[in-house]
């Protein structure tokens, strides 16, 4: 579904991504881990051109992702941010329905019904008409996930979705992500939650110094790490 070939990104003269190759198939849950500043968030942001890659290619269903037609590509790739980025000037329901309606996927009525369905599912139907300022971090992030889902994306990208949350709210967000994975949602997740990666991922990727240093199914990844940098990293975080 997503093919990444030799992806490079430099900021000024600093090399952040130094040739990344990755293949994501439908139904995959890829977890990306690595030390902070290793380029894992930049990698994720390059997939939808929130950052412009300096070199290499990203292909979605065989079609190269370029600046031209980027809005259509983004409509197919949902993005969930560390800081939620809900729109504070709109109610929860409008946050969810804005893009589907403005992009002409649904009428306002259809979108409202779909939003309520999604909110029902995460148990926040009673929050439909409140503004984001009234929600907890965990609630905000779950609504941000639902907002991305409302576009019916082919793949969801998560950029450290639990890093800005209070510890007691991490669980509810991970639970939702796990449910989505079980239902066959294709996901690429940049995370520090090793437990989540071990339990939910189909493959775990370790990025360090702008390169993929290890890529394995989670059991092998955590129990038999090969690369010395990964061994060192795991000894610190586990």
């Amino acid at each position: 579904m997503i093919d990444v070939k030799g992806l490079k990104k430099t900021f000024d003269d600093q090399v952040v991504l130094d040739g990344i190759d990755l293949n994501v198939e439908k139904g995959d849950v890829i977890c990306i881990v690595g030390p902070s500043g290793c380029g894992k968030s930049t990698f994720l942001r390059c997939l939808t051109r929130l950052e412009e890659p300096t070199g290499g290619q990203v292909l979605l269903d065989g079609e190269e992702v370029t600046e031209k037609g980027i809005d259509d590509i983004r409509a197919r790739m949902g993005m969930v941010f560390q800081h939620f980025n809900l729109f504070p000037n709109m109610t929860v329901k409008r946050n969810i329905t804005l893009a589907p309606v403005e992009r002409g996927l649904m009428t306002q009525k259809e979108a409202d019904a779909r939003a309520m369905e999604l909110l029902e599912r995460i148990g926040l139907a009673d929050k439909a008409d409140v503004y984001p300022a009234m929600l907890s971090g965990g609630q905000k992030q779950r609504i941000a996930i639902v907002r991305a889902l409302a576009m019916d994306p082919e793949v969801l990208l998560f950029d450290e979705p639990t890093s800005a949350l209070d510890p007691e709210m991490v669980g509810e967000v991970l639970q939702l992500m796990q449910d989505l994975a079980r239902e066959g949602m294709t996901m690429v997740v940049v995370t520090h939650e090793m437990g989540f990666a071990r339990e939910v991922a189909s493959r775990v990727i370790f990025i360090d110094e702008g390169r993929i240093k290890e890529e394995k199914p989670p059991a092998e990844f955590f129990d038999h790490p090969e690369h010395p940098r990964l061994k060192d990293f795991l000894s610190k975080v586990l």
Binding site: T48, D71, R74, R76, A99, A148
Partner: peptide, 15 residues
Amino acid sequence: VDIGQMEAGRSLGLN
């Protein structure tokens, strides 16, 4: 306005 707002809007496919 936080840069994340523009990113969120664009990521949903809005121009």
